[in-house]
Design a protein around this nucleic acid. Structure first.
Lengths: 201, 201
DNA sequence: AAATGTACAAAAAGTGATTATTGTTCATTA
DNA sequence: TAATGAACAATAATCACTTTTTGTACATTT
């Protein structure tokens, strides 16, 4: 379940969907700065006032667009992971999917037009928190399977996984070249070394 | 040994030092954008032309200032770590030192005046690479001491450590509150055991 | 009820002339 | 030999001004 800190958006509401669609299209074409509420209204074929019924301000609209994108990504990834059982494999897929999303979605557009905005987004703790909500169930499953030590705190493992995954999405290679699926998988395998954690000190 | 990709700066050269000092002072007070070469010259009590003898452009000067800061940090940290033998303890101290540097140095000033610039810096791979050069010797020592599995590639361990450390400096708490030395140490202890143990698989 | 369209003040963004800064050059100074 | 200071075109920042956009309100439409 996603964050509820901000207004809970109903993506199924056709009005909400239309606004978000139009907004995303605008951002994709012009970037955030050069997108006006009037333009969003024009593209979405609705009145400017209606947008304000659903989004208190432009900032909230942008937040909504990004959030929907992220949640859509998480849902797609969730489906993608169903075929996998091991946490390492899931993580590998998730990182690869994350990179792909960065390279072609709205993020890629932002990276070209407003790199500073994108950079700020990545340093926003909320960006992490949204990713965090994804993992606990998988961690628990991995614990039941004995892949992750039962003694470990789910919150700790989740935190650890998210730090690693986000880092790997944003920097495919620091010292080790982790652009290929194979090298990434090997890296994560080693980094997790699940099944241990029990032993040693 | 720091990067050599850019011009090798001799920090002992009194002229270089004066320029960097003046530049850093200016950035600290006005931020990067509002710092002019003329102002740097005035503060450093030297001619504008002299700055260009040592730095090809304003960008290079800024690069030099940041680099010196980072290297000074690494040197201080290196000294700090001499008392420690275990890698976990070293990492803990390094992360704490890094956070402190962020909160009070030139970075704190930038965070207030030009957060986007700071965000861009953090996403610059060079920022990571400079940190990377620090760890290999410590990793080797840890391997000799049996703390890190001898079979592991030093490059892998370094990459892993840097990702984790940078993440922990930039985000003191994602899911787990790691602001205190105690909790940070426990976290790293577990994270290293997870990633760098002999056992498992 | 919910979406629209118009109107409105306040805030933000664009505009174009003016000023400051950049990066180079070179003769002068120490 | 190295730093200086002045001159310079090209670029970038600044300022006062105009236009656009924002967010709100409310009467009107569907």
């Amino acid at each position: 379940m996603p964050d509820k800190q901000f207004s809970a958006l109903n993506y199924d509401d056709p009005m909400v969907a239309r606004i978000l669609d139009a907004g995303e299209q605008c951002i994709h074409r012009f970037g955030i700065r050069r997108t006006s509420m009037g333009e969003v209204a024009r593209v979405g074929k609705l009145s400017r006032g209606s947008i304000y019924r659903y989004f208190s301000a432009k900032e909230a609209l942008v937040e909504g667009i990004i959030r929907r994108r992220q949640e859509a990504f998480l849902n797609r990834t969730e489906a993608l992971l169903e075929k996998e059982t091991r946490l390492v494999d899931k993580l590998t897929l998730a990182v690869l999917a994350g990179r792909k999303d960065m390279q072609e979605g709205i993020f890629a557009a932002l990276a070209e037009v407003e790199p500073e905005t994108l950079a700020m987004m990545f340093l926003d703790p909320r960006f992490y928190h949204r990713s965090v909500s994804f993992w606990p169930p998988h961690v628990r499953l991995a614990q039941e399977a004995g892949e992750v030590a039962a003694a470990l705190d789910v919150v700790f493992v989740t935190d650890f996984i998210v730090r690693l995954a986000v880092s790997l999405v944003m920097f495919p290679t620091i010292e080790v070249d982790l652009r290929s699926r194979k090298s990434l998988h090997a890296y994560l395998q080693q980094a997790l070394r699940m099944g241990l954690g029990e032993n040693g000190l």
